[in-house]
């Protein structure tokens, strides 16, 4: 197994007392798997994704990545884990505005110390960004930005891609095109994909689907 969540719970403090977002969720993801994570608003989808990516820690439970419990990792090991193992794609793209497209694409790979210029230019080619490498994020359309984000996530050859509503800010046609590219690249690189979406139509295009409801897997 690539990723195993065992009995994971997470509570957030809020103004009206603690809010339990996840309660005893267990989930496994095999290498190369392609899973959609669906659920209502507030069902804990994003939280689960963040926990899996090492952005946050659960209150209880284990998160095993390739058999190692990342919950136990220190801050810098966790950062290294994110750098080298995970590729993230966000709804708001979250590119680095001060860097151009080329630098954004290569950013995480270079951070991880596994920058491969050939791979990067191949990615750019595949994502249709070759003509845009010198541009800055603010000069790109939403779809273009998200393609850069996907490239950035894949450049370091991560084991797992975590995508949070990657097409949520795009119109349907653009979204579908972006999703196609992501799924194709995922398949080519053999990385696993866990994608949060509230759209059953999109979820249906992935290999399998888990549904989260009120903090529990259905």
């Amino acid at each position: 197994m690539l990723l195993e969540l065992k009995d994971v719970s997470k509570t957030y403090p809020t103004g009206e007392g603690p809010l339990r977002v996840l309660s005893g969720v267990s989930l496994s993801l095999a290498r190369g798997a392609c899973v959609a994570l669906t659920g209502e608003s507030g069902s804990g989808k994003s939280t689960l994704l963040h926990l899996a990516g090492g952005l946050d820690r659960p209150d209880a439970g284990q998160i095993l990545f390739e058999g190692r419990d990342i919950v136990q990792l220190g801050e810098s090991d966790l950062a290294a884990f994110r750098r080298t193992r995970i590729g993230m794609v966000f709804q708001q793209f979250n590119l680095i505005p001060s860097l151009d497209v080329a630098a954004n694409l290569a950013f995480q790979a270079r951070l991880a110390g596994r920058h491969d210029p050939d791979w990067c230019s191949a990615l750019a080619e595949r994502l249709g960004l070759s003509g845009l490498l010198g541009r800055y994020p603010e000069q790109l359309s939403g779809g273009q930005q998200q393609r850069v984000a996907i490239g950035r996530a894949l450049a370091a050859r991560p084991k797992l891609i975590l995508a949070d509503e990657p097409t949520g800010n795009l119109d349907e046609a653009t979204g579908d095109a972006v999703l196609d590219l992501m799924l194709a690249l995922q398949a080519e690189t053999g990385a696993a994909l866990l994608m949060v979406t509230h759209s059953l139509r999109l979820a249906a295009r992935l290999g399998s689907r888990v549904h989260l409801s009120a903090g529990r897997l259905a």
Partner: peptide, 13 residues
């Protein structure tokens, strides 16, 4: 807190 940082990405919890 990480939770404050992930707010940047989160559309929901």
């Amino acid at each position: 807190q990480p939770s404050a940082l992930v707010m940047v990405f989160a559309n929901e919890r």
